[in-house]
Simulated assay, not measured.
Amino acid sequence: MHKSNHLQYGLVISAILILLSVLFYVLNLSTESWVKWVSTVVIFVGVIFTCTQFAKLNDGNVTFGNVFANGFKTTSLIALVTVLFSVVFILIFPDIKEKALEEARRQMEKQGQSDDVIEKAIAMTSKMFMVFVLAGGIFGTLFFGAIASLIGAAVAKKNPNVQQPQL
C-alpha cells in the first residue's frame, strides 16, 4: 500500500488557484488572456511537484502507473474544487459573466465579425455561460493535469522493489 499525497497537494493547489482568481478579479485582470495561462502553469507545476513528492514519500518504491494515478487524482480534486468555486463565485459576482461577454464581443469585433454574427454568438454564449464554465473548467483542468501527471510520472525517481519469482 502506497502513502498518498493527492488530497493535501490537491487542496493546496486549489487554494492557490482560488486565491489567484480572487486577486485577478479584484485587480480587474480576470478577462486578460495571459491570466488563463497563469492557472495552467500553477496546475502543471503543482501536479508535477505532487508526482515527484509522491515518489519520495514512498522511497521510490513506485511504478510509472502509481505516480501517474496519484497525479491524476490530484488533478481530479483540483478540477472539482475549482469548478465548484467558479460556480459559486459567478453566482456571487454576476458581473463576471458580463465582463466575459464584453471581452468576447471585443475579440469578435477585432476579428472583423459582422454585427449579426456577434449578436448571435453573444446571445448563445450568454444562455450557455454556466455550461461553458463547467465544461471548460473540468475538461481544461483534466487535460492539462493529465499531461502534467504523465510528465511527473516520467521524471519521478522510481525504484520499485519487484519480487522475483522463485524457481
Score class of each variant (00 low, 15 high):
165 P>R: 14
108 M>Y: 15
157 K>M: 11
127 K>L: 10
43 I>P: 00
160 P>H: 01
133 V>I: 06
37 W>K: 03
44 F>Y: 08
6 H>P: 02
53 Q>S: 12
13 I>F: 02
62 V>K: 04
60 G>P: 11
148 A>H: 01
24 F>R: 02
58 N>T: 03
89 F>Y: 08
8 Q>N: 15
89 F>D: 08
56 K>H: 08
144 F>D: 15
91 L>H: 14
135 A>P: 09
57 L>K: 02
60 G>M: 00
49 F>L: 08
162 V>D: 15
13 I>Q: 03
127 K>V: 04
8 Q>A: 04
72 F>G: 11
98 E>M: 05
145 G>D: 09
124 M>Q: 10
47 V>T: 03
52 T>D: 07
45 V>W: 02
41 V>Q: 02
164 Q>S: 15
22 V>A: 04
21 S>V: 00
119 E>H: 09
151 I>R: 08
76 S>Y: 07
2 H>W: 00
59 D>G: 04
40 T>N: 13
43 I>G: 00
48 I>S: 11
143 F>G: 11
116 D>V: 11
42 V>H: 01
29 L>R: 15
96 I>S: 13
143 F>P: 13
162 V>R: 13
129 F>R: 04
27 L>V: 10
140 G>T: 04
130 M>L: 06
105 R>E: 14
87 V>S: 07
124 M>E: 09
1 M>F: 03
143 F>L: 15
132 F>D: 12
54 F>R: 01
12 V>E: 03
38 V>H: 01
99 K>Y: 08
154 A>I: 14
154 A>K: 15
12 V>T: 13
145 G>A: 08
53 Q>D: 09
40 T>H: 04
131 V>P: 07
64 F>Q: 11
33 S>K: 10
61 N>I: 02
17 L>I: 11
87 V>K: 15
99 K>V: 14
49 F>A: 02
87 V>D: 12
89 F>G: 09
63 T>D: 07
41 V>E: 03
95 D>R: 14
5 N>V: 10
31 T>C: 02
47 V>N: 10
164 Q>L: 12
11 L>M: 07
27 L>Y: 07
118 I>A: 00
139 F>D: 14
70 N>C: 08
8 Q>F: 07
113 Q>Y: 14
38 V>D: 04
103 E>I: 06
78 I>N: 01
159 N>V: 00
44 F>T: 06
163 Q>Y: 14
120 K>Q: 05
60 G>Q: 01
132 F>K: 10
100 A>R: 08
37 W>T: 03
105 R>P: 07
99 K>F: 07
77 L>E: 12
9 Y>L: 09
51 C>W: 06
150 L>E: 11
122 I>C: 02
6 H>G: 10
156 A>P: 07
92 I>T: 09
33 S>F: 12
75 T>V: 12
125 T>F: 03
162 V>E: 13
38 V>Y: 05
25 Y>I: 13
101 L>A: 07
45 V>A: 04
26 V>D: 06
103 E>F: 12
88 V>M: 11
112 G>Y: 05
5 N>R: 07
134 L>P: 12
166 Q>G: 09
118 I>T: 02
93 F>T: 08
39 S>D: 03
70 N>T: 12
63 T>V: 06
22 V>Q: 00
54 F>C: 03
128 M>I: 11
60 G>A: 05
